[in-house]
Simulated scan of single mutants.
Amino acid sequence: MSATGAGPHAGGAPLVTADVDRSDPAYRGWLKEAVRAVRADANRSADTHLLRFPLPAHWGVDLYLKDESTHPTGSLKHRLARSLFLHGLCNGWVRPGRPVIEASSGSTAVSEAYFAQLIDVPFIAVMPRATSREKTRLIEFHGGRCHFVDDAHSMYRVAAELAVHTGGHYMDQFAYAERATDWRGNNNIAESVYEQLRRERHPEPAWIVATAGTGGTSATIARYIRYMGHDTLVCVADPENSCFFEGWTRDDPHATCGHRSRIEGIGRPRMEPSFLPQVVDRMMRVPDAASVAAVRALERRIGRRAGGSTGTGLWSALKIVAEMVARGRAGSVVTLICDPGERYLDTYYSDAWLAEQGLDIAPYAAAIDSLLATGVWPEG
């Protein structure tokens, strides 16, 4: 049986031809053990922490960060990779000895390489050549192989072609992220947030702020909110060089962007199948310099380094906090620490890189400092 992706926007099942007898006891035994191993990873991994970002108590607003960097593979994508592997295994797409291929800018590939190694199948990551060196090192550390492309738009096609060539399975996170995760609960990220807030002074958040790469996280959170009858609203923060904001504001499922996002892990050149605009209550376009200023402010305030996508979400969360303070509305806001900053020491934490990119973070850093000092978001 060979499996390939059904096309970048098809969202259908991969194409398959039989060369494995699914009733073969050897295959069934392998499958049972593979599923057990992936589920066991979730069972022995403690839930991630919900950290408080320090704000003046008299504001009446609490800001929390769900620290997904503490997963075994160091990022939010660990949850997604686990769900994708269970989805692929239980659908009969991931098979013994056959490679799993993914199109990824880094963190998903790191996590998928980990799970591929866990069940002893090869893994190939198709990724832009500009992906951070630390991410490629981690993929290789977990036994994966990196296949670089010069044009990020070609990742989908190249990954699908590799699946045909190798007889492997194109995991296609961008098509399957929103459906592979159990959004009704089962300790997904949304259920975890609400359980951890249960004893806080504002246990039902006014807003949860997410960022979008596949769109799977925002879809999971928004669906869970509706399913449980919560009043929480969902904001998606989008970086420069991403089409999600334009697609959402114009209700255009065919929106595209011609440039690659500088904020690794989020922002896409096309509207991905797993991004569900209709469940998003608000979107914010965040300048890349603001994202970097926010992660540096995070380090100063709580002593934790995080990746650029965390800064994108934090910038938007702080703006929402300022709006709530201005309106005299008490409540809580939640955003995410998506991955650790140690993966980006030569980019977001490098002044030389900022100069090379023409990014001036000073005005955005000053805006954050002003807000935290006065409770008022500066004009302009």
Rank of each mutant, 00 (worst) to 15 (best):
A306L: 03
F85S: 05
W183I: 02
A13G: 06
V295L: 15
R223W: 07
L298G: 01
P340Q: 12
G341F: 05
T4G: 13
R39N: 14
V295Q: 02
Y64D: 04
G215E: 07
A103P: 10
P363R: 11
D120P: 06
E161I: 09
H202T: 05
V38R: 00
G106Q: 02
T70L: 15
V286R: 08
C338M: 13
R305I: 04
A355R: 15
V279M: 00
P277T: 03
A366Y: 09
S75L: 05
S261M: 08
G7M: 07
E140M: 10
G303H: 05
R145V: 13
A177M: 01
H71V: 07
R28S: 04
C146K: 02
D47N: 12
N43T: 13
N91D: 11
W183D: 03
G328P: 06
G144A: 03
H202M: 02
L197G: 04
A255F: 03
A37N: 04
R133N: 11
V38T: 09
R98M: 11
A13Q: 08
D62N: 12
A297N: 03
D41L: 12
M283T: 12
S45E: 13
L354S: 05
A18V: 14
D62G: 05
A293W: 07
V334Q: 01
D21P: 10
S132G: 01
L371S: 06
Y348W: 14
R300H: 05
P128I: 06
M127Y: 02
T310F: 00
S291K: 09
D182W: 11
R36A: 13
A160S: 15
S2M: 15
K32C: 10
H87L: 10
A42D: 13
F148E: 11
H202D: 08
G92R: 08
A297Q: 11
V158K: 03
E246G: 11
E204T: 15
T312P: 06
S316M: 07
T217E: 03
G358V: 01
G12W: 01
G143L: 01
P273Y: 06
D151Q: 00
W248F: 11
R79T: 00
L84M: 12
L55M: 09
R184I: 01
M228N: 10
C146H: 00
A10R: 13
G74I: 06
I124T: 13
H87G: 05
S105C: 08
F245I: 09
L371V: 08
S23R: 13
L345C: 08
H230T: 10
P253G: 11
S154M: 05
E178L: 11
S107G: 06
G380Q: 07
A255P: 04
H78Q: 04
G380S: 08
K77E: 10
P239L: 06
S316C: 13
V126H: 09
G267N: 04
A367Q: 05
S107F: 01
V295N: 08
R79P: 00
D47R: 14
I225S: 01
H71Y: 12
L51C: 04
M127Q: 00
A163N: 01
A160W: 07
E134M: 10
E33Q: 14
V292W: 10
G331D: 00
L31K: 12
R157S: 12
E134Y: 10
G168R: 10
G267C: 05
D369S: 11
